[in-house]
């Protein structure tokens, strides 16, 4: 059993109104040093696979098909554990 953390983030150049709102709020709180905030998602997936390479292949396929939308999102996969 493998455990993966999948980070789905908005592509560079895609406006993140949510991130902007949070940045403005941080400025209101006095954190002027913050120059940008981008909000993404962490999706945790547990899956059975023969080895890490197969786990990664399976994960990339399912991310491409469902978990991330390539028009607006990028992703990173991190396999964080074997149970």
């Amino acid at each position: 059993m493998y455990k993966a953390n999948i980070y789905v983030t908005l592509k560079k150049g895609v406006l993140d109104p949510q991130g902007n709102a949070v940045k403005n709020s941080l400025h209101v709180l006095g954190y002027q040093a913050v120059s940008e905030v981008r909000i993404g998602k962490l999706i945790e997936v547990w899956l059975e696979a023969d080895d890490e390479q197969n786990a990664r292949r399976e994960l990339e396929e399912l991310i491409d098909r469902l978990l991330a939308n390539p028009v607006i999102e990028d992703y990173q996969v991190e396999i964080v554990g074997v149970e």
Binding site: L15, P17, A21, I72
Partner: peptide, 17 residues
Amino acid sequence: LLEAGLLPGAMLKNRSL
């Protein structure tokens, strides 16, 4: 229809949130 690929593009949250 966008997600299904019948039309191109994607939707983001409204600018105003």
